[in-house]
Design a protein around this nucleic acid. Structure first.
Lengths: 345, 345
DNA sequence: GCTTGCTCCGTAAACGTTTACGAAATTAGG
DNA sequence: CCTAATTTCGTAAACGTTTACGGAGCAAGC
């Protein structure tokens, strides 16, 4: 005899009552409920996930899908860890468990998601690293599975998403550098189909246009969004002839920022003196020298908002989070440092 | 009509046969098996996880438990991402899915593990950040749940584990620095109960003893194992009077290494010139200047070995991985750089 | 032709829950 | 005291699989 049966036998009541007591149903005597609760705690009873999921058709877990291999996402552990922490805080409030679903670098994300969904791993999903055109969005919408995307996409089915304010970063970055006399401003663009690159570049062009500065495609640097890519960009910049070289740079990615900083440094270009850098905050970036001027956002808050927006789309929790369909861009704070130094010569 | 029933109806055979065909059982005509396989693929049928788990008593997933909040684990960067990738590669070979179970920074790891196990999330578990005395190990052993620990522990129930060779790092580190004339060698120790600290410090003392150098407790620096802690250590070192100050340092943690490097740098102490540093390799560390002398280990390989050793303890896979109970220390390679520079003055 | 063995397949029970339904016991209302 | 309403609980079906069991069909051996 195992599980709920054993508990029921112990208490000499029926399994139905035990289940109701445990699940907070109203039609059970408050006194027996207490007995059940105590006995359950004493025996360390926890409802079997499979049985419950089978019967209820829901699992009580929310999945966070991400691609492994930072060479792809460009986000290191600390990025996601912090986000997870926020997501989980909210989930814990509702007895929801968070599991991280890791799509191997060798598997197709679309296929992976299909499997995850078909197997019924989770009731709701958070997907990250959204592509410009993302099949996962259509798929989840068609299946009517609650989900939220971290990152906008051209694939729009009226689904909820959260994203960083790349427009804002491009604009304030350009404004700031132009105000200091820069006109050749370099930016990074991912070399794949992740959507954020397009959004950022478009805003960058707009901002330049507002200032009457011609757009130069040579100032867009395509590489992998990790520190290696950043380092390599630094070397490429150093290798450019003085006239064609950018005099400043705007970055929205943590790892990339650190890499670029080092890459410039190794080539004898000093950020804040010879070259202006506006980057993205990270724990590493705190120790860069000279102090980095950067965009900051609390990743834990991002996680919290992600989770709350997701719950808002789940029937069972919607009334507790009356947010509607959240499609929001989160602004970043500019932390002033010394890396966007003086005017170019 | 859903799931396997629908499939069976479509094919006009019984659900039993469908199930057997799908699961590769021998007693099914090869021709009908093909028909079933094709139909399943066409309809996008994937067995429901809950039903299967309930019946079989196993889930086909392996869980990787970790604590969130890099301020605790001390592993930032891409440590876990890389390990995951290795684990998953092996899992995928056996149709096993990897899920990451994230214990929130607000929850007790022991309680979290209990919940995870009771709910039947996974068939087998990998636990990380093992403590010197770790209840999780006893718990899992008592429940006879296949698991492997990333990190040794004094709690020893004859369970499998994998760990980095901290003894080796301490010895080669000390040998190398002593050979260059150092006698005051600083090391880091975690300020909590994680076991690796003890192992490392013990070996460090032994190594000193072999060289006839007295052990000075002031040369053990306790702080958080992250970059902030490393930076702070650098400042503390700089603040010490010249005679009591270490002239070199040995580190086994990625983030800490980067932090220390910066901390020293910011205080005007130049690694490789004024001070010797032997650290731990990471993607970030590659760009430190001067080039870091460091210990390297392929994290993906670590993941692969973890997974294979875990499968070796699972009855269903044991014969494919005849490794026995793996309890192994993985050696690290020393990559020579310039940071462990010249002799002290 | 009868038995034996083999191949293939259908039937039904089981896994551990939740929950609709109805029954028993109690209380309230008159 | 009878009826109606309410509270509390037990019963049993259902969720989607897997698998033990047995039966049908057929070939082979004698």
């Amino acid at each position: 005899m195992k599980g709920i049966r054993r508990l029921a036998q112990e208490l000499e009541i029926s399994i139905g009552t035990v289940s109701r007591a445990l699940n907070g149903k109203p039609d059970v005597n408050e006194q027996t409920r207490q007995r059940v609760l105590e006995a359950a705690a004493a025996m360390g009873y926890v409802p079997n996930q499979a049985g419950r999921a089978l019967r209820k058709g829901s699992t009580g877990v929310v999945g966070f899908m991400m691609q492994s291999g930072s060479q792809i996402t460009g986000q290191g552990d600390v990025f996601f860890m912090s986000v997870f922490d926020g997501v989980q805080m909210v989930c814990a409030r509702h007895q929801l468990d968070l599991v991280v679903l890791l799509c191997s670098s060798e598997e197709d994300p679309d296929a992976y998601l299909q499997r995850v969904v078909a197997r019924g791993f989770a009731d709701a999903l958070i997907i990250s690293a959204t592509k410009r055109h993302d099949h996962r969005i259509e798929f989840l919408a068609r299946r009517k599975i609650p989900f939220i995307a971290l990152g906008r996409s051209l694939t729009d089915v009226g689904h909820p998403w959260l994203d960083l304010d790349f427009e804002g970063m491009a604009q304030t970055g350009v404004d700031r550098l132009v105000a200091r006399g820069h006109s050749r401003i370099g930016v990074f663009a991912p070399n794949d189909d992740t959507n954020l690159g397009y959004v950022f570049i478009d805003s960058y062009r707009d901002a330049l246009h507002r200032h009457g500065i011609a757009f130069d495609p040579d100032l867009i640097f395509r590489t992998y969004p990790n520190d290696r890519g950043g380092h390599e960009m630094g070397e490429r910049i150093a290798a450019m002839p003085a006239g064609r070289r950018p005099t400043g740079f705007i970055l929205t990615n943590e790892m990339l920022t650190v890499g670029l900083y080092r890459g410039l440094h190794d080539c004898g270009i000093r950020p804040g003196a010879d070259f202006a850098v506006i980057g993205r905050h990270s724990t590493h970036a705190q120790y860069l020298n000279p102090k980095l001027t950067c965009f900051y956002l609390s990743l834990r808050d991002l996680g919290i908002q992600l989770a709350e927006s997701l719950l808002a789309t789940m029937p069972a929790y919607a009334e507790q989070y009356p947010l509607g369909v959240v499609r929001k861009v989160l602004p970043l704070e500019l932390i002033e440092g010394d890396s966007d130094g003086p005017a170019p010569r």
